[in-house]
Write a protein that binds this DNA or RNA. Structure first.
Lengths: 330, 330
DNA sequence: TTGAAAGCGATACCAC
DNA sequence: GTGGTATCGCTTTCAA
């Protein structure tokens, strides 16, 4: 089923068919309609390879990720795919773990296939993928991973997220706040911490540890046994820590949210939704971030210029029950 | 950088270059070596679009999924990608949610791009994707989703998984077993239940409910308050239920694994690993399943014939601490 | 052993 | 308004 067959069926030339289907060139309306009708009838679909050969556009982009776990990549991916499918663009998925050799293989394969652009995504904004994407013949957009200097990079605004969380606790009347979060070497941790201290006071306590439930438990143990003033509001660096915190509080007979408000970060449904009570948390809008990234590579691929640099997208608060006050302030 | 440039650089014709790089045709060894060397030097890479136009092979396959959550799809995807990258094949990822229209758009886009085959994957073997993949001009392999009759379909062997779990509890000396699992309308639930009863006895209790932690909790509540004999071994239909069960037992002062052994299903790291104690569980080998699926579409795309029908791949036991006995029997 | 030329499926320019 | 033809980058006969 080629354009040739269609031309024969419609008793016109291939060039006429091409023009009819692409809505360009001048021609009789009825000819155009007739050709389109016949195309429909016999189910003609143009070969994208042939088209791409001529136009130098494959309507294809590559997505490179080292997040095999999917926590961050999946929503980002969904956003990219959603944004691009409307433009007839398909997405190559390349999971490269942290293997530079594998990364190179995938990048080469994508370039061979003439991708219109590449989106690199990862797990944290302060680490780069193990593969060099500078000097490529196609545009590159970084999402949630460190880009080359002066590259187009998107990430979520951790400062904003930290602000939202802290502010929410304070609006609910919480005065003694603590921040239990991940390892300090994450820039996202530092950004959120800074936002937290800006609102909660420069001497508000911050506890750094691993990104785990166990650490949430341990942190409560530490705070409750220290003899110091106990907090009435706890801002956690992610939902897993928050879950550990909530469980530990329950085991101590402390009621959430009546006695203490707990707020998480990530809005990882599987954790936030299954915690008792379900977690109020900060959502990083990863899908939206993916959508933006998709539209950006596309714009770049079409030759438009995009302001380079790091763009931080705002977070949003998702209110469930671990802070109380829902219905009151929403 | 086309083959033409390379030909000029090597002072031979394009046809000679082509033959040299593709290792076919007879030619002087030194000519071949020289061309390959120059190709390397100037970094020539053939345009896959042009090549595909001629060969009718795009070295591209499409992956269709409705599992936006990624629980099942991600490992499957990783396996597919891993198996295919070695063959120079790239994977289009299409997340179609449960939207038939979106599904059709993606399938059409893939066909336009001349994919060599399509892999359909989902969340359960007894439901089909909302898109018809029969009568396509390319081979289709189904993984973890219901395929058309006489299609090539892969899934995990739930009966085998149920057998492994029950047997493990029994080998540890557990006598009074209970199975707490998901909704009975899942065929996987029925398969596992059947395997459970085969070993534990036809009147061994099975409790059906939703796939949630909350249900695990509720089931323990139900069992412990029923006055009936209490179990010393609990086989859970997934890790989330198992986690609910373990937490509920702890809250009742029942020690896992000393008093009761609990075994999960899925080996979902994020749940199984963070439970206290970490869950012994059944792994469905999803990555391996993906690898198989990838190799199968590839074989079909190359014209080889593959035995149609449903193939069930074995599960494996992952021993952590929720059953006790590790080190003893491993 | 090497090279010229046809053609894969589509688009676009330029005659008619 | 419609059709012939060159072209995209590569592979593959077939001649030289």
């Amino acid at each position: 089923m080629t354009i040739h067959d269609l031309a024969k069926a419609a008793k016109v030339s291939v060039s006429t068919v091409s023009k009819a289907l692409n809505e360009n060139g001048r021609m009789a309306d009825d000819t155009r309609e007739r050709i389109k009708r016949i195309a429909q009838e016999i189910g003609f679909r143009p070969n994208a390879l042939a088209r791409g050969l001529l136009s130098n556009r494959s309507f294809t982009v590559g997505l490179l990720t080292n997040d095999t776990y999917g926590r961050f990549t999946l929503p980002v991916m969904a956003g990219i795919s959603e944004a691009l499918v409307d433009h007839g663009v398909s997405v190559f998925l390349c999971a490269i773990e942290d293997d530079p050799a594998l990364g190179k293989i995938h990048v080469d394969a994508m370039l061979d296939k003439q991708v219109d652009g590449i989106i690199a995504t990862g797990k944290r904004i302060d680490r780069a993928l193990p593969v060099d994407l500078t000097g490529l013949p196609v545009p590159v957009v970084y999402a949630f991973t460190q880009g080359a200097p002066d590259s187009v990079t998107l990430t979520s605004d951790d400062g904003h997220g930290g602000h939202l969380a802290t502010e929410w606790l304070q609006r609910l009347g919480r005065k003694k706040l603590v921040h239990v979060t991940g390892p300090e070497d994450f820039s996202s941790v530092r950004d959120r911490s800074a936002a937290f201290r800006e609102l909660a006071g420069q001497d508000a306590p911050i506890l750094y540890g691993p990104w785990s439930e166990a650490w949430g438990h341990a942190a409560i143990e530490q705070i409750w046994s220290s003899g110091a003033d106990r907090p009435d509001g706890i801002f956690c660096g992610n939902d897993q820590i928050a879950r550990g915190v909530v469980d530990a509080l329950r085991e101590r007979g402390v009621t959430v949210p009546a006695d203490v408000s707990v707020i998480g970060f990530d809005n990882w449904e599987i954790v936030a939704g299954q915690t008792r009570p379900p977690l109020t948390t900060v959502d990083m809008n990863l899908k939206e971030l993916g959508r933006e990234a998709g539209l950006m590579v596309l714009a770049l691929a079409e030759g438009k210029t995009v302001e380079p640099g790091l763009r931080r997208l705002p977070c949003k608060l998702v209110v469930r029950q671990s802070c109380g006050g829902d219905g009151l302030l929403r």
